[in-house]
Design a protein around this nucleic acid. Structure first.
Lengths: 142, 142
DNA sequence: CTATATGCAAATAGTTTGCCTGTTA
DNA sequence: TAACAGGCAAACTATTTGCATATAG
């Protein structure tokens, strides 16, 4: 994400220009929603939230905005099982914990300095692009 | 999976009784398909393959069979991104490597003795049910 | 001013469901 | 023979697309 030097944005949290992506009110609000909420909302949840500010926005536009933001590496699409895709603005490499009892999702940090090859046997000569780790479980009661 | 002691099955590869699951020709063929093919087929791929032996089987039945086998812990459902679900009969805990160039999927073994907590920071008091690891990447050319 | 994004509605893909008939245990 | 599975078609959900209009740069 690149902050445009001559940016006239009133809110410095949300860059006027995101690495060459044409910035529209809709894209800005979609991004803002994800940046504010750390809860990995679905497209429909983003849609409902953004409608407060942009009552005319359509669900298809939300999908298109999310797609554009994902393509420009500003947000991340996360898929859990067969559920709707979820999105998050946390671009730091991380995994997810899915609480099977509440359905809530928590970010998981990697332990510092670990590498996939420390715990998985990878075939020779692989160039790793991305690792996706999801832990399913629950909190013990006591 | 439990082999019935007095089993009269002619093919010892496919148990007549799978932990209380009523065994039908359809379920048997679906299971056999996954056991034979190590290629993580989708429901539609299983459907096409099984139709050779059971020309009257319907796609809905394949879905139902897969669901039943998953519920009884005999096969595993694996989801990659937004693609169709894939299924495999390898119940040993393993991850997956997705070759982004060919779309092919390879099983990945864990290194012996590793535990999630070795590489991820988990919240206190979590009971882990399942870990899902998918590595995306490609083979280097040389 | 021109390329590109929006909004709407309709299309699509994958999967699930309802209902009646057939089969398993 | 009772409970459950199969087959078929229709329903459903999440997402994508086509097209006319609006807007960003």
């Amino acid at each position: 994400m690149v902050n445009h030097p001559e940016s006239t944005a009133t809110n410095q949290e949300f860059p006027e220009e995101i690495s060459g992506l044409r910035m529209t009110r809709q894209r800005l609000e979609v991004y803002r929603c994800l940046h504010d909420e750390k809860t990995h909302p679905t497209a429909v949840e983003v849609f409902m939230r953004v409608k407060d500010r942009l009552p005319h926005i359509s669900l298809a536009t939300v999908y298109n905005c999310l797609e554009a933001l994902v393509q420009h590496g500003v947000i991340r699409q996360v898929n859990f099982e067969r559920e709707s895709s979820r999105y998050c603005a946390n671009m730091i490499d991380h995994g997810h914990f899915l609480d099977v009892e509440t359905g809530k999702i928590y970010d998981l940090e990697f332990k510092p300095g670990v590498c996939v090859t420390d715990f998985m046997k990878l075939p020779e000569g692989i160039i790793t692009e991305d690792i996706d780790i999801t832990v399913r479980g629950k909190f013990s009661k006591n």
